[in-house]
Amino acid sequence: MPFSDIARAAEIQLSRNLIPSLKAKGWRPRVIGYDGYGSSAPSTTGMHNPGSPMARVLARMLMRPANAPAEGPLFRSIPRELPTTPERVREIAVDTLMDAQRGWRQLIDVPVPYLPVTIRVGGVSVRTRADRAGYIDVVVRDHGLGPGWHDVEIDAAGAGTVTTRVRIVGPGERLGIVCDIDDTVMVTEVPRALIAAWNFLFKNASNREAVPGMAQLLARIEDAHPDTPIIFLSTGPWNAVPTLRSFFAHNGYPQAPKLMTDWGPSATGWFRSGIEHKRTELRRLMIDLPDVTWLLIGDDGQHDPLIYSEVVREHSNRIAAVAIRHLSQKEQVLAGSQIAHPMGLGYEARTLAEADVPVVTGGDGFELARLLPSWIVGGHADQAGGWASGPAEG
């Protein structure tokens, strides 16, 4: 038996052994809901398989103390004025407490495997079970919901009913955005292990550094294309989602589903492949949302140029543009990157350079906005970070 299988079995057995002890201390199963996505009607383009309306519901079953703060998909902006009601004071206090939660506590999770759940989306109910790591990843068909954000109920045995949400994308051709997180919207200097570990394990969300101009770029595209679905795709762990929510709210990033991964032993090795995670999710988005043409945003510190070049080669008609944040020389060194040219080196650089889609590189969101086609950004950023409404070349 491979060592990774032994480690995986030990991980599962450890969780099972801990659950009775935690129950005796007053801990109970809790549903941690994540934002999902879906479609509201069959594809309107003849080139795609129409399928049926779908909603992808994401959650995890974990053991939590009875008095632990809520971890639902809250998304509140940082207050710019003093609170005027007791309820608002309590909301801010909870947000601040969650923001101050150290990352290392998020890694000490005890999943509840195989917990029975009932999922209600619109007028449809689906019964299922969590997997052996406590995850729920379920597609609900023919839900009857229209475009926009909708509440979804998850009723888990012993955990009660919680509400999470899905972003339903309307029919018709439209622009969508897939955006990386690490070193694209948030400076993490991944994959340098010590720096990445320090950022994730010990720094509060409000203290992490945002990449300049990226929040403004995404907001500008949303203004120009109000029905644009945004998906954040990361190799980071699902455990980080509560902290990421605080970071995104604090720095003005739009609310959007986050597709993360699960760290730890898998059926194929000691650690799950981040590259395969991104490849799989991108291919799934092509199938789940067939009318969407995607803007892919990433950075050249890891594998985004390689992954995006593969998508461009396989689905060039589904890619509106590719935007790669070029790390500074210091960031390249800290990240251990082998890429020295703004377009990268080797196969991925040639594929992107030869692609029949616009490909731009820049040091931050403002520079990327100046280089992206004007129809995408609805105008271009000037050197001071402001926006011009006139047309731009490209």
Rank of each mutant, 00 (worst) to 15 (best):
I19V: 08
P20W: 15
L22H: 07
W27E: 00
W27P: 06
R28N: 07
P29W: 15
P29Q: 11
P29K: 05
P29G: 13
S39K: 11
S39C: 10
P42T: 05
H48V: 02
N49C: 03
P50L: 08
A55I: 02
L58C: 08
L58A: 06
R60H: 11
M61I: 01
M63G: 09
R64A: 06
A70V: 10
A70P: 04
P73G: 04
R76C: 10
I78R: 07
P79L: 04
R80W: 12
R80D: 15
P83N: 07
P83W: 12
P86M: 12
P86S: 13
R88Y: 13
V89P: 13
E91Q: 07
E91A: 06
E91H: 04
I92Q: 00
A93L: 04
V94H: 13
T96C: 15
L97N: 01
L97M: 06
M98W: 09
A100N: 09
Q101D: 13
R105G: 04
Q106Y: 10
P111H: 15
L115E: 06
V117R: 15
I119P: 11
V121Q: 11
V124F: 14
V124L: 15
S125M: 06
V126N: 13
R127V: 10
T128D: 13
T128A: 14
D131Q: 10
D131G: 09
G134M: 10
I136L: 07
L145H: 01
